[in-house]
C-alpha cells in the first residue's frame, strides 16, 4: 500500500510541528524518518494513522492517501483509519492485565470484533510467528504479557499490531529502549515484514537506518517555531553515499562523527 502525503501541516495548538511535507512512501519497503530531535518525525508518523489528533489542541491540514483514499477527507472515521494501520511505540506497552495471547487479540477485543476459537488460535500463532516470537512463548500463551523481557515485549507489541493484518506498520523508535540483541532481532524481523507491509520507522540510529531502510527521509527545522520540513528523500544508498543537500550531508557526517 502506497502512502501519499501531500502538503501536510501539523500543529500543537499554536506551535507548528510539521511544515508542508509532501512525500510518497513506497509499498512493501521500509522507509526511515531521520532528523534531529524535535524536528517533527513522531508528529508526521502519527499523522499517518490519525493519532496526532488525540492530543488536545492538535490540528492537521493536508492530505494523506493510502492507495488513493484520503484519510483526512471529511467523512473518514479516524477510529476506522487506526484499525487499518499498525503502530509500534518507543517503549514496549503490552496491556498488563492481559495474557500473551490476549495481548495479540487485543485489537479485535477492543474493536468489539468476535473471533471463533479456531480463528483466535490461528491469529495468535500467525501473528506471533510473523513477529518471530512464537517459538519463545508458545508454551506460555496464558501468562502475562508483561512477564516477558523488554525485547520480547516489543515483539509482542508488533504481533499485536500485525494480528489485525494491517498493510501499513508505523514504528516510532521501536528499538531505542532495547538492548543490542533485542534490537538485532527486531531489525531481522523488519527484513521479513517489508515483503508484505509498508513500514515507516523513525530512528535516531543511522546505522540502523542504513541496515533496515530501503528509503530514507531526512527532516529538519530552521527554528523551533517553524516546524519540521522535509529536506531530502531518496533511496538509502543515495542518501548515505551521495546526499544532494549539504544539510543532509552535515547531519549524517555529524552523526557518524
Amino acid at each position: 500500500m502506497t502512502i501519499k502525503i501531500e502538503n501536510l501541516n501539523a500543529y500543537y495548538g499554536a506551535l507548528q510541528a510539521v511544515a508542508d511535507v509532501s512525500l510518497t512512501i513506497q509499498e512493501c519497503a521500509v522507509t526511515a524518518l531521520i532528523g534531529a530531535s524535535g524536528c517533527g518525525k513522531s508528529t508526521l508518523l502519527r499523522c499517518i494513522n490519525r493519532m496526532h489528533e488525540i492530543i488536545p489542541g492538535a490540528l492537521v491540514s493536508g492530505v494523506v492517501r493510502l492507495n488513493e483514499t484520503n484519510l483526512y477527507e471529511p467523512q473518514a472515521d479516524p477510529v476506522a483509519v487506526r484499525a487499518r494501520v499498525g503502530m509500534v511505540f518507543q517503549r514496549p506497552n503490552p496491556f498488563p492485565t492481559m495474557s500473551i495471547a490476549e495481548n495479540v487479540l487485543a485489537g479485535f477485543r477492543l474493536r468489539g470484533e468476535r473471533l471463533s476459537k479456531t480463528e483466535s488460535q490461528e491469529t495468535v500463532e500467525h501473528a506471533l510467528s510473523a513477529a518471530n516470537l512464537w517459538s519463545e512463548v508458545k508454551d506460555r500463551l496464558k501468562s502475562p504479557g508483561t512477564g516477558l523481557s523488554g525485547g520480547q515485549q516489543q515483539r509482542l507489541c508488533i504481533a499485536r499490531a500485525l494480528a489485525s493484518r494491517p498493510d501499513v506498520l508505523l514504528m516510532d523508535e521501536p528499538c531505542s529502549a532495547l538492548d543490542p540483541a533485542s534490537t538485532g532481532a527486531i531489525e531481522e524481523l523488519l527484513g521479513e515484514l517489508r515483503l508484505a507491509h509498508t513500514v515507516v520507522i523513525v530512528t535516531h540510529n543511522l546505522s540502523q537506518a542504513m541496515r533496515v531502510a530501503d528509503q530514507v527521509a531526512f527532516m529538519a527545522t530552521t527554528s523551533a517555531a517553524n516546524g519540521g520540513h522535509l529536506v531530502e528523500y531518496g533511496s538509502s544508498t543515495q542518501m548515505f553515499d551521495h546526499p544532494a543537500q549539504s544539510a543532509t550531508q552535515d547531519y549524517i557526517a555529524g552523526r557518524f562523527g
Partner: peptide
C-alpha cells in the same frame, strides 16, 4: 495510546 492505535473507540 496503544488501545486507540489499535482502532478502538
Amino acid at each position: 495510546e496503544a488501545g486507540l492505535a489499535l482502532g478502538a473507540p
